[in-house]
């Protein structure tokens, strides 16, 4: 189990209908690549976030596959068009089977 994993999201609370907004996300995670060895020479098992998705009102905005070379605390900044009021849902998938999620409401006006 990866410890200290905590998702964070920065998204506007309000937008104009049809506005393109910038969204920033970060999850604290050690992103152990599976390539490193410990002091005894044993491989430290891979433990990474392997997928990240964002949906708006059930419709996919972004779906990212993460690879082991991505460094600790993966950060994503992307844009989304907000057609109507609704909910942004963010999901991170961990190698260990854990799923972390976070949601943000966006109002129109």
């Amino acid at each position: 189990m990866a410890s200290g994993v905590k998702p964070r999201v920065k998204a506007p609370k309000k937008a104009e209908a049809g506005e393109v907004v910038t969204i920033k996300t970060l999850i604290s995670h050690k992103m152990e690549s599976g390539q490193r060895k410990d002091k005894e020479g044993n491989i430290i098992p891979r433990s990474i976030i392997n997928r990240f998705t964002c949906d708006f009102n059930g419709k996919n905005v972004i779906d990212v596959t993460l690879e082991p070379a991505i460094s600790t605390n993966p950060y994503f900044e992307f844009e989304a068009t907000i057609p109507e009021a609704g909910e942004l849902k963010f999901t991170w998938y961990d190698d260990d089977g854990s799923v972390y999620d976070e949601a943000k409401n966006v109002a129109i006006g």
Binding site: G4, K6, R8, K10, K24, L26, S28, N73, Y75
Partner: peptide, 12 residues
């Protein structure tokens, strides 16, 4: 603060 990775540690 969102872009400053140092801030993650303040939460911990």
């Amino acid at each position: 603060d969102f872009d400053n990775p140092g801030m993650i540690y303040t939460e911990q």
